[in-house]
Write a protein that binds this DNA or RNA. Structure first.
Lengths: 168, 168
DNA sequence: CTTGTTACTATGAATTTCATAGCAATATGG
DNA sequence: CCATATTGCTATGAAATTCATAGTAACAAG
């Protein structure tokens, strides 16, 4: 009789549980990563996350319903939308950065090298992985960061795009 | 022909994708939350996350395989284990804190109030929600934080425990 | 009037999750 | 001894989700 009643995590006071009902899903986080990487179109997001159309459609719809994403028309006839982060979506940035830092430090072998480098434009130096700039010690904010993909990672993304295009 | 080949996210250079293959799952994050909250036994974790036994067993096994958790025998005959965070698991703390901050700020109505308060023992004052102490400005580390559950949240947890015990 | 582009929807098999039940090994109380 | 309680799972089958693959809708370009 191992049972749990009333598993309503969205009614808990715990902010982690609340957040997880929104972003507690691999595809959702990958979609958010792409939006932060300035991929705003369905195709780009699909290609770079490697998700099926349904996965991406479902996540974008849920993210919109949860208020992290807005659709913006960039073409009528045929109707086409771009997906952009709202303020709530933008506010997710520190979580992504913390996840990135943990991923770099604990989920990769050192010889693989980094995927990105971020420059802290306030001081003009590398920001490193932490929540404060490793060069000047100030807390880093999304607006103060300029990211650059390292060649190897850029090539990986280009290759994914080519591979995607080749199948359609 | 909308298809993607070779969706091997664990081979990408992207640290976010790498991290997500490990922690990109609601139950996994909730289990980690409990381990950080010093719930080390299967029952406690099950009761507080609201997961079924299989969900918890599967996550704990995967977390162990991925090196975030170790089992520690606390009783032979019958063999009983406690689950503890490894260094890799402990290093996940900043991600959880960022998620907590986002959850408090964007997934709850203000009148609900916080679940926890953290004191930064270095300065003895409230640490707030950010990656740096709101009182002294220093980056906060897990070892320098003392968390306390607010009464409402503590009651919620007590109630969950009682409800769980009542069914077995 | 054929081919290409973009953003999906449709379908069915495979996998995962969930709720519920049960069990094994021992401690505890009478 | 014997019944009941405790702890940490495993077993089972229905329900939901995911995945791979294919196809469609609405136009644009040549």
């Amino acid at each position: 009789m191992a049972k749990i009643k009333d598993n309503k995590t969205d009614q808990t006071l715990c902010p982690v549980a609340r957040a997880e009902t929104v972003v507690g899903d691999r595809w959702t986080v990958l979609v958010l990563r792409e939006l932060f990487a300035r991929s705003h179109r369905f195709e780009e997001i699909q290609a770079q996350t490697g998700g099926t159309p349904q996965m991406i459609t479902a996540r974008l719809k849920k993210l919109e319903a949860d208020g992290l994403v807005t659709r913006r028309i960039y073409n009528k006839h045929p109707l086409r939308h771009e997906y952009h982060l709202t303020e709530k979506g933008e506010a997710f940035f520190p979580v992504l950065m913390a996840l990135r830092a943990w991923g770099e430090a604990w989920c990769k072998s050192p010889k693989e090298g980094r995927a990105m480098t971020y420059t802290h434009v306030v001081c003009g130096k590398p920001a490193g992985l932490g929540p404060v700039c490793e060069s000047c010690g100030e807390p880093v904010r999304r607006a103060d960061m300029v990211g650059e993909r390292l060649p190897k990672y850029q090539k990986e993304r280009d290759a994914r795009w080519e591979a995607f295009k080749a199948t359609r």
